[in-house]
Write a protein that binds this DNA or RNA. Structure first.
Lengths: 222, 222, 222, 222
DNA sequence: ATATAAACGAGACGGTACGTCTGGTCTTTAG
DNA sequence: CTAAAGACCAGACGTACCGTCTCGTTTATAT
């Protein structure tokens, strides 16, 4: 429910204003009235959540600690969010909000661009500031289908769409089979990389990224 | 430490007998003497752990519940295992112990065999009895490098080796490039499948398995 | 601290109001705020303690059992009391609260009245319902100076004062030496009796009580 | 039972030899054979018990700690003693064993001698090395009639007998009533003192001891 | 001298309770 | 009527000991 509120806030998939949806929620009994919600507390909670998940990791993070750091009563968190996961997710979401559209480099040569992208991803995975929160989020996703859906809709989808746009451009340039399933193609490229990092199933080097692109493109070309 | 004991039990990497290693451990101070360990309690604990992780999930599983279900004092768990994770991991390990070698079907046609294997994997992922524990284990692996290493060594390695053996056979039959990196090939085949299941990033159907094999093999052939 | 609260409640030795002292305690850090205390829980705990100490005896009584019987979290006990002894003591205190003043019989003849009182005490000591808790309390007092002080202040003092009042009356009637140390006189009379019972150093009969009074009064008369 | 063994050892109240009683015990099934008992272990246990009760107090003393300190298996303690209390009591007993008879000073003047004795007792009570163990023992006696009996028989009786002997001497000298109940007289003298110390019911000074003697003797003289 | 049976040290076992900690709910007070 | 503060019920945590029960290993008769 809370996360629905947050989605209203970002305005995806609905034309209703904040004020309207607040009034709508008001009609359903037993729920707090969002129009009365303290924006200051909300921001303090999300900031505290972000900081703490970096300092302690997701597992050792407690609602109690978030409330204390944010200078907020525990009930204020429980009132608006359903779980630790939801709070942290919304905190990440606010942080990673890309503003508007993502555009990937397009040099005209797909192989060059992909190798660049994949090497960049490898570098990103090696960043310790990225490591903790993203691992935490993924661990939660594994056990929480609701969170998984949210993640794919709000965080993964925009990035994936940008990547697919680049692939479509390659299709138009005759560098990819015209009937290629782009979702599948993306998975072929990224899943091995992601899995190596997430499950630590092997070393993650720029050379590995290159091999992956080479081998995959052999299957994807017309 | 306990898990090392269990590896002694399965005889990996050492020629020493149980009796010998028991006496050796005896010399190191402050550690319980494995030779006195109750095999009955050990089994009851692992069974209880396996059952409970299925019923409750890893997060809601408590040492206290394992002890109660196993009819065992809590101290008996703390004596031999260092954490909830270790107990559950060993429980899985005992469960999935393949006895001896794993041999995969070899019809002579790689594509046929791979599609069969991948469809079987898809079916396995749909089994609710498999779902809970494996998700739990993977969630732990994400945040625990030690556990990740153990998982790859004890559980994944034997299976992967069997799969690579099948790929080697295909190489000999001229169905795969002779200089192919088999680890990479395995990742190309399995990572997309595994990721769809683990992170719920898309539907998992037999047809999907087929497409995956088709597309991948295009890149792997000589 | 709790027991200090209870003293506030009974109004001994302080003119400050409950509200005042609550606010004062509020200022000292790390301590629970007594004004928020649940009176219902407090009563349930004391009742459970009283029942259980009768059923099991003090030694076999556990905080855990009190909490369970009272339908209360263990922390609620640890928050307000420092030990099993304090809880049980306050339970006794609430029970034995004499409301107002104690008045002892005054027939005009000290010897008669004392023999009556001492025989009554002997009878009380023989009551099994009295035995258990009072032995438990005394055993604790032996090892806990704080509890000893509390006992003398809250439980013994009022009774002793009533007894001394009777002795003063006898002094006025010329039946006791006018310069007699009344505390000492009380000890002479009661300590032998109490010791026989508490340490089981001899049989406790009405005749013994009489002899005690006879012999003691020989020393106390003018 | 164990304590009976120890009484056999000291030869109180029985004519049977050690060898005889050993053989007698042998006949009864399920009991350990005292003739095989390790004197070295027994001594180590009693010494450890004595040390630990001083260091930790009786309440915090554990059988496990005694066994560890004595370098002895726990079962060896449980084999020969029935409870922590019995072990500690026997440890005290061995310590306080007066060898043979106790003789108190006899100057010819009872008042002088009593005041000296009582002042000495007051001083003894103030000794911290005496305090801990004796409080512990008394606390146990309160709740354990068997231990109480043992205490009076083995530890208190010899001392009391010596005191009564001094009182008899005073009777012969015409300083006490000839028909005086000596047990009662002792209680009159000592119970108030003991109670002040044990239950901390008042300050314990040499002057208090004097007043006690003065007042009591007024009642005991012919 | 040797067998044999008991006591021994060691310590694992099923348990109970400890005192602490956190989670999510309920209550009180202030604004 | 929201929000902060925090007490509340609940129950898991990891530890300490309980008293019982094997294990091998002395040790001390009783052959």
């Amino acid at each position: 429910m809370t996360i629905d509120n947050s989605s209203d806030r970002s305005g995806h998939g609905t034309q209703s204003t904040d004020a309207e949806s607040a009034r709508a929620a008001d009609r359903s009994v037993g729920r707090p009235n969002p129009s009365r919600r303290s924006e200051q507390s909300r921001r303090a909670i999300l900031t505290a959540a972000r900081e703490l998940v970096s300092e302690l990791g997701f597992a050792k993070l407690s609602i109690e600690a978030i409330a204390a750091r944010a200078g907020v009563g525990k009930q204020t968190i429980y009132r608006w969010w359903g779980s630790k996961g939801e709070v942290v997710f919304e905190a990440f979401l606010a942080l990673s909000d890309p503003g508007e559209g993502i555009v990937l480099p397009d040099s005209g040569d797909l192989e060059t661009d992909l190798k660049y992208l994949m090497r960049e991803t490898v570098a990103e995975f090696a960043d310790p500031a990225f490591e903790g929160p993203v691992r935490a989020l993924n661990a939660e996703i594994i056990n929480d289908p609701k969170l998984a859906r949210l993640y794919h809709e709000k965080m993964a989808a925009p990035v994936d769409e940008a990547k697919k746009e680049r692939l479509r451009s390659a299709q138009r340039a005759g560098q990819l089979a015209p009937d290629l399933d782009l979702d599948l193609a993306l998975e072929l490229l990224y899943a091995p990389l992601y899995q190596r990092w997430l499950l630590r199933s092997g070393p993650l080097t720029p050379e590995y990224a290159d091999s992956l692109v080479d081998l995959t493109l052999r299957g994807l070309r017309p």
